[in-house]
């Protein structure tokens, strides 16, 4: 086999990359691999773990796969199948959306299921806000959800929604569609008001 880059020297390294969710594979000779920094790439232990995760997901028991068929994250739109392909999640709400899939996987990869480390100073201050916000947000928690931080999923989803709306608003402004931009601004304000202090 010859190198995919120079087509001259014999290929020595099989390089698999997952960049922005796109997987690519190449066979490179040493010189080309070094030149492109591909060998330094192997420094990243997480790359191998992504592959492992994706493999575990693809090979998951049918019962596991059926638990969340066709599931999609309401906040960022990540589909379960895409997560299975890349091993990467799209946003904080994904952790709640795919919680049932994630728990056994994380336990296998990490050997543990619960965080025992540092807690950000800011998260503690916001915990109360989130509990309040969850009561006010429309659409109550899905049945059977056993999040340990009640309301955090809904708050996360609301925050992601706000982010998405902001983007749409900026696009509307760029397209000089000010009517739509104003409507989006009002929706953002309404959401922000609710998740922050309850003044809907």
């Amino acid at each position: 086999m010859t190198c995919d880059n120079c087509h001259q020297r014999p290929a020595k390294y099989h390089v698999t990359r997952v960049v922005n969710g796109e997987r690519s594979e190449e066979d490179l000779c040493e010189e080309c691999a070094l030149q492109r920094g591909e060998l330094a790439m192997q420094l990243q232990p997480s790359a191998a773990i992504h592959d492992l995760l994706a493999g575990l997901l693809e090979g998951a028991k049918p019962s596991l796969r059926q638990q969340e068929p066709q599931q999609q994250c309401p906040a960022c739109g990540l589909a379960r199948a895409e997560f299975a392909r890349t091993g990467l999640l799209g946003c904080e709400a994904c952790y709640t959306t795919f919680a049932e899939t994630l728990r056994p996987l994380v336990r296998r990869v990490q050997g543990a299921g619960r965080h025992h480390g540092k807690v950000p100073a800011q998260a503690a201050a916001h915990a109360q806000d989130e509990a309040v916000a969850s009561e006010r947000l429309p659409g109550s928690a899905a049945p059977g959800r056993t999040a340990t931080t009640p309301g955090s999923a809904e708050t996360a989803t609301a925050r992601m929604k706000i982010g998405g709306l902001r983007e749409q608003m900026q696009a509307a402004i760029a397209a000089e569609d000010f009517e739509r931009a104003a409507a989006l601004r009002d929706r953002i304000r309404a959401l922000e008001g609710r998740s922050r202090d309850g003044h809907a």
């Binding site: 995760l53 800011q122 916001h126 340990t148």
Partner: peptide
């Protein structure tokens, strides 16, 4: 963290794009 709020959950810790980096 004094000026940026992080994605964090009590169960999973600091939320990362890859579950391999969570906690």
């Amino acid at each position: 963290n004094a000026s940026l709020e992080y994605a964090f959950s009590e169960e999973w810790g600091y939320l990362a794009a890859s579950p391999a980096n969570v906690g």
